[in-house]
Design a protein around this nucleic acid. Structure first.
Length: 194
DNA sequence: CGGTCGATGATT
DNA sequence: ATCATCGACCGC
């Protein structure tokens, strides 16, 4: 059996770019009353704070962005397009307004739906606004390292759906595990397509 | 297959 | 009015 160690606060208290890279390959674990849902992170996006026009914190401190301006290692969850939830991991230092969006998982436990794309990822894990601001160093919703991370190549690409962000729209702040079939498919880079 | 478009609600 | 999406529905 592999050993799973819960990621400590210090893991999250680093800049979003570093955190984004290191989150790839880690496990997200949501312990619910009747089941535990687990997935391995295979795709993420970094949001670099108020100066990043694609980041929600570029709008300043509002009730919605409170968690993203808060201490690292908490969940910043929001509703997009009126029906999908997206989960971010708040990065450091505290108050920087930076975070990493989780975009795709590889299923580890049994999951109720697909996990490619941020909306489906939240649906699969059972993450909603109820988890807004949740401490990821808790026992119900947390991230863990099972030692499997690190043995893969990381591809960087522009972030998805942020065309409005002007010069920030094209920066390569999306990262995913090369060749992993759970990376959100539609926008998958054209590598090795048969 | 691929591209297009409507749903649906918090936020500004 | 806009939006860090998804999936249904068209047309080829």
């Amino acid at each position: 059996m592999t050993v799973r160690s819960k990621l400590p606060r210090a893991f999250y208290d680093r800049d979003a770019l570093t955190l984004a890279h290191d989150l790839l390959g880690k496990l997200v674990i949501h312990e619910r009353p009747n089941d535990t849902r687990i997935g391995r992170i295979v795709e993420v996006e970094a949001y670099l704070g108020p100066q990043d026009l694609a980041a929600h914190t570029s709008k300043g401190r509002t009730p919605r962005t409170r968690a993203m301006f808060g201490p690292p290692g908490h969940a910043y969850v929001y509703l997009v397009y009126g029906m999908h939830h997206c989960m971010n991991v708040v990065a450091g230092p505290q108050g920087s307004g930076t975070a990493v969006l989780l975009r795709a998982l590889e299923p580890v436990s049994e999951l109720p739906c697909a996990t490619n794309g941020p909306g489906r990822l939240c649906k699969a894990l059972g993450v909603t606004l109820e988890q807004y601001g949740h401490d990821l160093c808790s026992d119900e919703l947390y991230l863990a390292d099972d030692g499997a991370a690190g043995n893969f190549e990381i591809i960087s690409a522009p972030r998805i759906g942020v065309d409005y962000a002007q010069e920030w729209a094209d920066k390569p702040l999306r990262f995913y595990i090369q060749g992993n079939r759970h990376v959100s498919k539609v926008y998958k880079a054209k590598s090795g397509v048969h």
